[in-house]
Structure formats: C-alpha cells, structure tokens
Design a protein around this nucleic acid. Structure first.
Length: 282
DNA sequence: CATATGTCCTGAGAGC
DNA sequence: TGCTCTCAGGACATAT
C-alpha cells in the first residue's frame, strides 16, 4: 500500500528515466480485468510517443512524469501498484510497459513498467490545466512533509472526526495512509480516537514534528514491505522500514517506543488502527 | 456543507 | 485435502 515514503522511493528509483524519450507504449496481454488507463491506449500512444520526460514529481501518493509537451502522466498505485525499471515480480500482473531511450542517436533502451497485483491502480494523461486542477483544485491538501503546527490546525482543527480518520483524508493533507497514520500518532503521543477539535496547540506541534520524523525515517529505509511482500522499489528490492514499525501490525506485542505498553488494535471507519495505550492516552 | 458508508479488485489465510 | 468465506485499504461515488 504505497503511501508517501513508498511513492517518494518510486520517484527516486525511476530517476534514470529523466531526459529520456518515450518510444513505445504497450498494454501486456492479461486475462485479468484491465486497469483504468486514460485516455485509451491508442490515443495515449499518439500523444506520448516522441515526448521527452523532463521531470518526475510526487503528488501526494501519485507519481507524475512531466513531458516536454506540457502533459503529465499520472500514476496512482493505490493498494498494490508499482513502478519498476527491472523485471516485475511476475508477468501476469504487468499492466503497462513504456519503452524509453536515452537522448542521442543510439540511446540506451529502457522499460518503465507499471505492475499492479490487485488492479486498483490507475494511469492518466493530463494536460496542464487538468494537472493544475488536480494540484490546486481543493481535492488535495498540502503535502504531509510540508505540514507545520499552524497548517495542521488550519487543515484539521475544526474537524469533529477522529484524528486518525482525518489524517487519512487526502483533501486535508496529502500522502498519509493507514500505516504511517498509526506510527505518526504514536510518536506524537495522541490517541487515534481523539477528536481533532479537542487537540491543543501542543498536540499540533507534536503531530507536526512526528510527521516529519516518521516519514523521513521511512524514506531513508525505502518504505515498508509488509508480510504480503508486494511493495518493492524500482529495482524490485524490498523496503526496510517494516523492521522499524513501532505499533503498526504489532497487536499484542510490546510497543517499540516505550517498551512497556501492549499494542492494541481497534477499528475506525472499517480500517485497522494500532496504538499503544501507554504512549497514547485517550 | 461535513461526515459516513459502499464499491472496486486479487490473493492470502482462516475455518470447516 | 479442497472448498468457501473474510479481510486487506487506496480513492471515489453515493448516502445521510
């Protein structure tokens, strides 16, 4: 389930594509239900073949390839999507292959692959106004790494939702998912069920610093590969942050922050929440 | 408007 | 053993 650290790792991993020219676009044969790709593959080919990849950006949990035609190819991995420069985990879940070449007459060939086991991911080509609407149209909050105490209070402070639920709302802030919400709230010392509207200035300060600390550390470890083994970096290597989770997925085990509390699992909005009753008082 | 719930999708694991 | 059922949770659509 790629969240900010995994998607950031993908962006860094596909950096060898920078400056390359798109030559081919294919959707591999697949007996599974095809993923959503917009526009249709033929149109996508016409619009992208010959275009140069100028930059790679992360937009919340999305990866964006920006081309010299002022168009933007937006990958949304959702649960199990991956961007790869090497062989995929298997062939049957390969969803899109983009062949690129380095600039120059006999530029080196390379394949950028979109692989997605569950097929909930999407790929979309946007023009600049559509991309602008995605970034600034109010559908996506500020990036989680940019959150300050006052920005947190501004984006979440009036909400009557539980803080854990609000952290997952990409309209409020972009990039946090179920796993990192749990780890961030632990370090902030805030109970996941606490209503946003009741949080104090000290809580927002703690949340702001915990957010940066957790996400930066997770990026350093190239994200989390859970027990299903799905998440991989662009070279098909596992992340390592799962070995440093303090509460996520650790129900009944000892909290890695205080080494005293026993990790609890509750359900909020039909999603699992892990927390330490010792570090995070109700 | 804000918040809550249902839907999509596949494969792992539980339970019989 | 082999089947059926439940669950995992991204974002979006629909309901309250």
């Amino acid at each position: 389930m790629p969240e900010l650290p995994e998607v950031e790792t993908m962006c860094r991993g596909i950096a060898p594509c920078l400056g390359t020219t798109i030559r081919t676009i294919e959707r591999p044969r697949c007996h599974l239900k095809p993923i959503q790709i917009r526009p249709l593959i033929g149109t996508l080919r016409k619009k992208l073949c010959g275009a140069q990849i100028q930059s790679v950006e992360r937009l919340g949990k999305r990866v964006v390839l920006c081309t010299d035609r002022n168009t933007f190819l937006v990958f949304e991995p959702r649960m199990t999507g991956l961007l790869l420069l090497s062989d995929p985990p298997n062939a049957e879940h390969l969803r899109l292959r983009i062949g690129v070449t380095k600039s120059g007459r006999r530029g080196q060939r390379m394949d950028l692959l979109f692989w997605d086991r569950r097929g909930l991911g999407t790929v979309q080509l946007l023009n600049s106004s559509a991309y602008d609407a995605l970034r600034h149209g109010g559908k996506l909050g500020p990036d989680a790494l940019q959150m300050t105490p006052s920005l947190y209070r501004q984006q979440l402070g009036q909400s009557r939702q539980a803080i854990k639920v609000a952290l997952l709302d990409q309209k409020r802030l972009a990039g946090i998912g179920n796993l990192y919400a749990a780890e961030i709230l632990l370090l902030a010392g805030i109970h996941p069920g606490q209503k946003c509207i009741h949080l104090t200035d000290q809580d927002w300060r703690n949340l702001s610093s915990a957010t940066r600390r957790v996400l930066r550390q997770a990026i350093r470890y190239e994200g989390s590969t859970l027990s299903d083994g799905t998440y991989r970096n662009a070279l098909n290597k596992k992340g390592r942050y799962q070995n440093h989770h303090r509460v996520y997925g650790r129900e009944g085990k000892t909290c890695r922050r205080c080494r005293v509390g026993q990790v609890q699992r509750i359900v909020q909005c039909q999603r699992a929440t892990f927390y330490c009753p010792y570090c995070q008082e109700a």
